[in-house]
Write a protein that binds this DNA or RNA. Structure first.
Length: 851
RNA sequence: GCCGGGGUGGCGGAACAGGCAGACGCAGCGGACUUAAAAUCCGCUGAGGGUAAACCUCGUGGGGGUUCGAUUCCCUUCCCCGGCACCA
């Protein structure tokens, strides 16, 4: 018998799969389809163990489904545009393109070495002109649909990356990549009107039954729907202010108004030059700090009385108008009515500036409030003629009054804002628009796509302008409408645009006449299993859903949601080290004393997700060289439940390696056709034991794969099967050949999605000619998953005291009788009166006594 | 603050339509093989008591409840992780 030579076995089968085109699929198949997709990687150098886990999860499903008879589409590609390529290129004095494509070459090699069952013919990078041609087409499509527009806007700008960021890319006031504090700048930018789909994006979440609840909740919170009212407050001396409130019922308590610093009225309202000056200072200060300091618990509320008043439309009182830093311009109308008695923020502000506080809502049966502010609902006081009404009733009555007086109405507001698409960076898909002095803004003709990214260019970021503007060749063009001279748009698209439709292209990557062939898409899409990290729970998934809906409305797609089933896997963690001056230090450079190798400062250690930037990555090769890639694949699945994160510990890997070696030894001891007999009927107790463990395991593994990626317990079950099987065989009893054959072959097939190389090799050793990739997945028989004779525990007053060995099917009365005759039971019940016996068939006998 | 997810041996984790807590694996201990080590194989391994047996007691973050029976259900409380966060 050969030993388990994983090196040769693995390269042998990888070669066979490639030569035989085992994983290539076509849409023209009579079989039902299954589209398994892992979120495609950013090609930044190397694939690490975190990626390995992600792709192995998908690969197990893909291989399993293939054996279930599905026509499995399992593609991979590269999310290749973006900042890291530029940064790395600058650092290494090379071109982003070279750096990116070198990475891709390397990563592909790694993927193949892991044995991932991809159809590599379908592979592409989003930076391929053949791909971004269609990303540009998508932009033009959105433009024609009225879903792309230009706006002069205050934008989030990262001074470090020197680019504009989408709202979604600002985390706690910092850049999502480098954490630099974001500042506000005014720029003319392209936006995508995701807001046109707000309601659909929200309500269709309900249809996503196979998405994790927490991801749906995050999207819901992000969309942030709230019901409220819009109310117009007339300004004393002319004009008006429109506010939004979710608590119309508290309007009698509105003792002042607050507008945000960015609000146009903040400079228009003041008469007094001194106030105007002070307001300007406040505006500048708040522009700089507002979005920046968000991470801090709370910035102190600061405001200025503008010297003007408005009428409260309900009380007809004159109330002062303030500008203050705590009101957001982007939400609602950028102005609020302040009700200090019923809102903490307004309350704090009122205390600071000594403003009146009037209670107008009290919880039932109370006439005044003990503690202010009271933010709950209740019954109205001090609000004639609405006194005594519930908050709900009052809101309706008040809104009727507003509509009658044309001063407002009930309305709905969302937090979701339009998607800022423009980036002033080089390494991205150029926005295919042209500026003509005669015709204005003109889209590039479809047949002129792609607008190619110039390669001979200084791509260093230069702040508010894209590096593309330095290329005369790129910049100057002719107007598609009038033929006159014109300039190109020089901004590139946010890379999230590239990744918002790639899953469609995988279904139809070969056409160069259209973004995708509808017939192919109709067959393969939507994605059945989409697997990736939670970090994409909002951005990528929301954008992809938006694009799918927009394309659907344009007649290009017949489905509403791109991903039927989403699985968010937990990341692989590893210790990382941080130095104040030298940032992340790779663990391999950290000496015993845990001091920085550059400046000898003490390092801060933390457990983080593996990432290149933190230097704490572990390469899959670390494992595959020593144990083989099958061991590595199986370990990342076995270490913890797939959705949970786990800390990388190399010493734990050996358990899996031992297991695979034991499987090898057992299975390879039946070479060739030594097991020919196909009659699997059991003929003795050992046969029955083998049959039992076989079918129990088939059931468990099948259900664990089907039931939400429970691969850790599936592998545990396989280990148990091996242990049991070995124990029975070692008893040196006679096991009927057919029974043994079924057991051994089932074991190999059940292991194959997890450890495909060893499984293929063993399958061949067992005498089979073809790859087991399309071998039928074993099916369990229900009558073989349960023992005929079982042990039933007897519990007396809540404690297990004895056990009975009985046939599984037995009458309850008989069980009671046996239990009461049991020696140990008699001992424990002696001198006590038995109050009752409860028999739970096949589970337990519970006796309780009088005490 | 709001929303979501968790607290089980030395460690990763099993079990939960309420029914033998700790499957499977790591680490550890003991033994076999070996000149020796590695590898492999066998056994033990929640805590405490008990003679290394039988057996007993306690144990799933804390407190209380429902039940013949609770890691699982209910109430209450503490702690950890993730998301959002001055959203009116």
């Amino acid at each position: 018998m050969k030993h388990y030579d994983f090196h040769n076995i693995e390269s042998k089968w990888q070669k066979i799969w490639e030569e035989q085109k085992t994983f290539e699929v076509e849409a023209s198949s009579g079989k039902p389809k299954c589209y398994v997709l892992e979120m495609f990687p950013y090609p930044s150098g190397y694939l690490h163990i975190g990626h390995l886990k992600n792709y192995t999860l998908g690969d197990v499903v893909a291989r399993y489904k293939r054996m279930q008879g599905y026509n499995v589409l399992h593609p991979i590609g590269f999310d290749a545009f973006g900042l890291p390529a530029e940064n790395a290129a600058i650092k290494q004095k090379t071109h982003p393109k070279k750096w990116t494509y070198d990475s891709i070459t390397h990563i592909k090699k790694q993927m193949k070495a892991v044995g991932l069952s991809y159809d590599f013919r379908r592979e592409f990078a989003t930076s391929d002109p053949e791909y971004y041609k269609w990303t540009q087409w998508l932009f033009l499509f959105l433009y024609k649909q009225g879903l792309a527009y230009q706006k002069e806007a205050l934008v989030n700008f990262c001074p470090h990356c020197r680019t504009v960021l989408a709202n979604e890319q600002v985390i706690a006031g910092g850049c999502w990549r480098c954490e630099t504090k974001v500042v506000k700048n005014s720029l003319k930018q392209w936006f995508l009107k995701i807001s046109a789909y707000t309601e659909e994006l929200l309500s269709d979440l309900e249809t996503l039954n196979e998405w994790p609840e927490h991801v749906k909740t995050m999207q819901k919170n992000w969309i942030g729907k709230s019901y409220g009212a819009q109310v117009t407050f007339p300004i004393v001396g002319g004009g008006e202010i429109e506010i939004f409130t979710t608590r119309l019922d508290t309007i009698y308590g509105a003792t002042f108004l607050v507008i945000s610093p960015e609000h146009p009225l903040s400079l228009e309202l003041p008469y007094d030059p001194g106030i105007k000056e002070a307001t300007k200072i406040l505006i500048n200060k708040s522009l700089l700090t507002q979005e920046i300091e968000r991470s801090a618990e709370e910035i102190p509320k600061e405001g200025i009385f503008l010297g003007r008043y408005a009428y409260n439309p309900f009380t007809c009182e004159k109330i002062p108008i303030f500008v203050a830093n705590y009101v957001l311009y982007e939400y609602g109308t950028g102005a609020i009515m302040a009700v200090p008695a019923h809102d903490t923020r307004d309350y704090d502000f009122a205390l600071k500036y000594n403003l009146p506080i009037r209670e107008v809502v009290v919880p039932e049966a109370l006439t005044h409030l003990e503690n202010l502010p009271y933010e709950g609902y209740g019954y109205l006081i001090n609000s004639e003629p609405y006194n005594g009404l519930s908050s709900e009733e009052a809101t309706i009555k008040m809104s009727e009054f507003l509509q009658e007086k044309l001063l407002g109405k009930l309305t709905i507001r969302y937090k979701l804002r339009d998607w800022l698409l423009s980036r002033q960076r080089y390494w991205g898909a150029p926005i295919p628009m042209i500026y003509c002095d005669q015709c204005g803004v003109v889209p590039v003709n479809e047949e002129d796509l792609p607008v190619k990214l110039p390669e001979e260019i200084d791509f260093t970021p230069r702040g508010m302008v894209s590096p593309l503007s330095t290329s005369d060749e790129f910049l100057h063009t002719t107007c598609p409408q009038c033929g006159g001279s014109a300039r190109r748009e020089t901004d590139t698209m946010d890379t999230f645009m590239c990744s918002s439709w790639y899953y469609l292209r995988f279904g139809s990557p070969f056409t160069n006449r259209e973004p995708f062939n509808k017939k192919d898409i109709d067959y393969f899409l939507p994605v059945d299993y989409y697997i990736g990290g939670v970090e994409h729970a909002i951005l990528h998934l929301l954008y992809s859903r938006f694009i799918t809906k927009a394309l659907g409305d344009g007649g290009y797609l017949d489905f509403k949601e791109p991903f039927s089933r989403l699985f968010t896997q937990g990341m692989v963690l590893h210790t990382s080290y941080w130095c104040q001056t030298h940032y992340w230090i790779a663990p391999k450079n950290v000496k015993e004393n845990k001091h920085c190798p550059h400046c000898d400062a003490e390092l801060i250690a933390s457990l983080d997700a593996m990432s290149k930037s933190k230097g704490n990555i572990v390469l899959p090769e670390t494992i595959s060289h020593k144990y083989g890639t099958d061991t590595g694949r199986m370990y990342v699945l076995f270490a913890a439940p797939a959705e949970r994160e786990f800390e990388w510990k190399e010493e734990s890997v050996s358990g899996i390696f031992r297991f695979l070696n034991r499987v090898w030894k057992l299975v390879a001891s039946y070479p060739g056709l030594s097991l020919k007999e196909t009659d699997g009927r059991p003929q003795n107790p050992d046969d029955e034991a083998v049959k039992l463990i076989t079918h129990k395991t088939i059931k468990k593994v099948t259900q664990d794969i089907e039931n939400n990626f429970r691969f850790n317990t599936a592998i545990a079950a396989l280990m148990e099967m091996l242990n049991d099987l070995k124990a029975i065989i070692e008893r040196e009893n006679f096991i009927t050949e057919g029974v043994l054959k079924e057991a051994i072959e089932s074991l190999v097939l059940l292991i194959s999605p997890f450890a495909p190389h060893i499984a293929e090799e063993l399958w061949e050793i067992l005498g089979h000619q073809n790859s087991l990739s399309f071998q039928k997945w074993p099916v369990y028989e229900e009558n073989w998953v349960k023992e005929e004779v079982i042990e039933i525990p007897i519990q007396i007053d809540g404690k297990i005291r004895s056990k009975l060995t009985v046939p599984r099917i037995i009458e309850e009365e008989k069980l009671k009788e046996l239990a009461l005759q049991d020696e140990k039971v008699l001992k424990f019940v002696e001198g006590k009166k038995v109050k009752g016996i409860i028999v739970v068939p096949e589970k337990i006998i519970s006796i309780h006594t009088e005490t």
